[in-house]
Design a protein around this nucleic acid. Structure first.
Length: 171
DNA sequence: ACGATGATGAAC
DNA sequence: TTCATCATCGTA
């Protein structure tokens, strides 16, 4: 069983998508080489009201991809040296997304983009095979008992929003 | 604990 | 135009 996830999967609220992404496979093709790794750690970033989200300050040149309909990549640069991968979720005009924090055997949002050679070239492109970066359901079932929810990392400045359990980790 | 390293956005 | 901040990581 191997199914490529399309736009419909992503056009739901970020929390639902984040939860559903655990156990799916992020697939990257570079030249003839294909790498598929199971998704094990993600964080949901909600709409304009989520103070931890880039979208909370309104639409800017950087976060514009988040305002599109779900099913696209939002890849941004931070700390002067890191690229961070996000899947845009929700309907058009409702900026939200899911950040990829860890894959099987590859922990760290900036480490996984480096390993898979993901950078601004993937920003604002569709989550599809044609992009060279897509997501597959390979039939892995993830029971609730294997999921640990907790607060998101590195968002202490976000007040009440920093404490919300929007991180989903596969144990 | 902290430096690397530069884009971003808000203030001025 | 300046400046603090930053969805991080590696080294100490």
């Amino acid at each position: 069983m191997r199914r490529i996830l399309g736009p419909r999967f992503f056009r739901r609220d970020a929390l639902t998508v984040a939860r559903a992404l655990l156990g799916k496979f992020l697939v990257r093709r570079v030249g003839r080489k294909e790498t598929a790794l199971m998704i094990t750690d993600v964080e949901a970033y909600l709409g304009l009201e989520d103070k931890a989200s880039h979208a909370s300050r309104g639409k800017t040149k950087r976060n514009a991809p988040m305002f599109a309909a779900g099913g696209r990549w939002y890849v941004y640069f931070t700390y002067g040296m890191h690229w961070i991968l996000n899947a845009v979720t929700g309907p058009e005009g409702h900026p939200s997304g899911v950040m990829f924090r860890g894959l099987e055997g590859l922990q760290g949002p900036a480490r996984l983009t480096k390993a898979l050679r993901i950078s601004k070239r993937q920003n604002d492109t569709p989550i599809a095979r044609a992009t060279g970066l897509w997501i597959e359901d390979r039939g892995v079932r993830v029971p609730k008992s294997r999921i640990k929810r907790g607060p998101r990392i590195g968002v202490d400045y976000a007040g009440d929003w920093a404490k919300k359990p929007y991180r989903f980790k596969l144990l």
